[in-house]
Lab assay of single mutants.
Amino acid sequence: QVNIAPGSLDKALNQYAAHSGFTLSVDASLTRGKQSNGLHGDYDVESGLQQLLDGSGLQVKPLGNNSWTLEP
């Protein structure tokens, strides 16, 4: 069960990665100043990332080996 409060997208993504045990490689300029609506409930990694990114204009991309990145 994930419980991440709304706020900074950077912070939300870092909390989610730490909670879910995956690696997220992101260029900080992509997420700077963006906000997230947070995340509450049970999600697989990709669904949770998509939910956190909702409205940010960013997309999640798998890199393999439980690693992910973001792209515009």
Rank of each mutant, 00 (worst) to 15 (best):
26 V>M: 11
67 S>M: 13
62 P>W: 15
72 P>A: 11
71 E>L: 12
6 P>R: 08
33 G>I: 01
15 Q>V: 07
63 L>V: 09
72 P>Y: 10
55 G>H: 05
45 V>R: 05
58 L>N: 00
36 S>T: 15
61 K>Y: 08
58 L>S: 01
29 S>R: 11
65 N>W: 07
64 G>Q: 05
20 S>P: 06
57 G>C: 12
63 L>E: 06
39 L>K: 01
43 Y>R: 01
48 G>Y: 05
6 P>A: 12
17 A>S: 07
37 N>K: 14
10 D>G: 08
45 V>L: 09
19 H>W: 12
2 V>A: 08
47 S>W: 06
55 G>N: 06
14 N>M: 15
68 W>E: 05
71 E>D: 06
57 G>S: 03
54 D>W: 14
54 D>M: 15
11 K>P: 02
9 L>F: 01
48 G>W: 07
36 S>V: 05
53 L>G: 00
2 V>W: 09
35 Q>F: 14
72 P>T: 10
27 D>N: 09
13 L>H: 02
37 N>P: 14
40 H>F: 13
71 E>A: 09
12 A>F: 06
61 K>C: 11
11 K>F: 13
71 E>Q: 08
62 P>R: 15
61 K>N: 05
8 S>L: 10
7 G>R: 01
2 V>R: 05
66 N>T: 03
65 N>H: 08
45 V>Y: 05
69 T>F: 09
14 N>Y: 13
3 N>Y: 14
37 N>D: 08
15 Q>I: 10
35 Q>S: 11
8 S>K: 07
14 N>I: 14
43 Y>E: 01
38 G>C: 06
5 A>P: 14
72 P>G: 07
28 A>G: 10
36 S>L: 02
47 S>G: 10
28 A>N: 08
59 Q>P: 01
2 V>H: 07
25 S>W: 14
71 E>P: 00
31 T>A: 03
43 Y>K: 00
67 S>R: 12
5 A>M: 10
6 P>N: 04
66 N>E: 06
16 Y>S: 02
4 I>T: 02
25 S>Q: 14
25 S>E: 14
50 Q>T: 12
30 L>F: 07
45 V>T: 08
52 L>G: 00
50 Q>I: 13
10 D>C: 14
31 T>G: 03
29 S>M: 10
66 N>F: 07
47 S>L: 08
50 Q>K: 15
38 G>K: 01
48 G>N: 03
65 N>L: 08
57 G>W: 04
12 A>C: 15
26 V>R: 00
4 I>D: 01
67 S>Y: 10
46 E>C: 15
7 G>N: 07
38 G>E: 02
11 K>D: 15
10 D>I: 13
40 H>M: 12
2 V>F: 10
56 S>I: 07
51 Q>D: 04
47 S>R: 11
34 K>N: 03
21 G>W: 04
13 L>V: 02
21 G>M: 05
18 A>H: 10
60 V>C: 14
34 K>R: 08
16 Y>Q: 02
45 V>M: 07
18 A>F: 10
44 D>S: 11
28 A>L: 11
65 N>R: 07
65 N>V: 09
4 I>L: 04
16 Y>F: 15
29 S>V: 09
44 D>N: 09
49 L>H: 01
63 L>H: 07
17 A>T: 05
56 S>H: 10
30 L>Y: 06
54 D>L: 15
22 F>H: 05
6 P>I: 04
29 S>N: 13
29 S>Y: 10
71 E>Y: 10
67 S>H: 14
27 D>I: 08
38 G>V: 00
63 L>T: 11
60 V>S: 11
35 Q>Y: 15
44 D>P: 06
21 G>H: 08
54 D>Y: 14
5 A>T: 07
72 P>W: 09
11 K>N: 13
12 A>G: 02
20 S>E: 13
36 S>A: 06
58 L>E: 01
70 L>Y: 03
36 S>Q: 08
